[in-house]
Amino acid sequence: SRSPQSKKRKEDSTKQDFFSNLPDDCILHIFSFLDPNDLDVLSSVSQKVYAFVNKLRVKTPRSQIFHSLRLVQDSFSFKLTMRRNGIKLDLVTIRTTGTGKVMNPADHIAEHRAMKALVLGAERPAIQYIPTAIQKLV
């Protein structure tokens, strides 16, 4: 609806939904190349897309970037992966609550006393600073 041209294209495309006609495996394959933040944005596109994104999130359901440090929750193996510029730095095991439910990673980090040592650890010179969001937590 931004320009007459894009509006026209939309009307044309309603004749056939080419994307949704792709086999499910292909849609998942395409989305598997997106990073967790793109998946977050993608989940608001439509109900069908949301369902596909949630399927993929069995592998990487949530992620958050603290400056250049990205934390990715892997609910399948209950691990929290830290990445900086795409390079995997470390794994933090996420504790489960009494009911067996995975704790919210934010709560987990807040309680994870080893986090500070992990971030500052001399054996991990790749991290030059503590991102402010984590500073507040540790």
Binding site: S6, R9, K10, S13, T14, D17, F18, F19, S20, I30, F31, F33, L34, D35, D38, V41, L42, S44, V45, S46, Q47, K48, V49, Y50
Partner: peptide
């Protein structure tokens, strides 16, 4: 995937030609 990468929700809908049904 490269076309969608880094785009806003509106841009993604435009590329995939999908209507928001939320």
């Amino acid at each position: 995937a490269n076309k969608i990468n880094g785009k806003t929700v509106e841009e993604m809908r435009e590329i995939l030609q999908l209507e928001c049904d939320f």
